[in-house]
């Protein structure tokens, strides 16, 4: 009886904890969404109230003033290209590390990459900025893509190497004996067999590239090269007086990622968990 009551108590406390946390998480986002339809005056009058009319006016003006068209294009461009290239390079590297048997060299290089997980973006900003101006890469799309790729590599190399290690060698060896080249083996055996981890790599990489801020912010000065987070930041600085515009800008930057989240939630979770699970 006492044990039963105790169990009930635990269940009630559990519900309270989860419901409170869920509300704290979701309410600000709901507030953001409906407030983005209110004109500035209405927001000042009452921050809580629902909009009197759902007008797209804020969105139209924000899209124009904030140059969100070009920023969205840039975000899609940087994220897609960097994600594809990083994933391809990481898979190639993972294949080399996992299957070629150069134990010493691969081991050394592997730890060399893992060390990169500890290095923060900010600790290389200064030299990166100087280096890019020296190579005339600053204020170019390439100059943004290359650091994105370099910083994405350590984690993806970690993911691909540990996955490719688990692929049985028999098939690959048979192909090599039949005279297939290593590149051929990579394309027609390793890549198809790595499909599950490729999904995680692509999605995890896309998410971090999409939300990247510092590189674009420091390495570019042109408004036409800005990604969405940087455009939102610039817009918030300039348009902070009109809350309606501000809220619609925030919503524009948020909605695609929420859709992305609901489509790929499982893969995103796998990416975050992958670094920690004991083997």
């Amino acid at each position: 009886m006492i044990a039963h009551q105790r169990k009930l108590g635990i269940v009630i406390v559990s519900y309270v904890v989860l419901i409170v946390l869920a509300l704290i998480t979701i309410l600000p986002l709901i507030w953001l969404l409906y407030t983005s339809f209110k004109p500035h005056k209405e927001i000042i009058e009452n921050v809580f109230a629902l909009p009197r009319v759902f007008s797209m006016d804020n969105y139209q003006r924000t899209w124009e003033f904030g140059r969100f068209g070009i920023a969205s294009f840039n975000s899609i461009f940087y994220s897609t290209v960097a994600t594809l290239l990083t994933t391809l390079l990481a898979l190639m590297t993972g294949y080399g590390f996992a299957k070629f048997g150069y134990k010493r060299l691969s081991g050394f290089l592997y730890y060399f990459f893992i060390l990169g997980l500890l290095i923060t973006v900010h600790s290389v900003l200064v030299p990166l900025f100087i280096m890019e101006s020296f190579l005339n890469l600053d204020d170019t799309r390439l100059g943004i893509l290359l650091p994105y790729i370099a910083f994405g590599l350590p984690f993806l190399v970690y993911l691909s190497t540990s996955y490719i290690r688990t692929i049985p060698t028999a098939l690959e060896e048979a192909a090599l004996i039949d005279g297939a080249s290593y590149i051929r083996v990579f394309w027609s055996i390793i890549v198809p067999m790595s499909r599950p981890v490729i999904g995680t790599m692509l999605i995890f990489s896309f998410l971090s590239n999409w939300n990247e801020f510092v590189f674009v912010f420091t390495l570019t000065s042109k408004a036409t090269l800005r990604s969405l987070p940087v455009a939102v930041n610039a817009f918030a600085g300039g348009m902070a007086r009109d809350f309606g515009l501000l809220f619609s800008a925030l919503t524009i930057a948020t909605i695609p990622m929420i859709v992305f989240y609901f489509v790929f939630r499982k893969k995103i979770a796998q990416g975050f968990a992958a670094g920690s699970i004991k083997e």
């Binding site: 990481a90 294949y95 080399g96 290389v124 990166l128 370099a150």
Partner: peptide, 24 residues
């Protein structure tokens, strides 16, 4: 083949992360 597979990543990582760290 090994150089072709591993080289590009090592190059990018070296130039854009390791070199700047040493530079700092």
């Amino acid at each position: 083949s090994y150089a072709l597979l591993v080289g590009p990543s090592v190059f990018l990582y070296g130039v854009f992360i390791i070199f700047p760290v040493i530079f700092s």
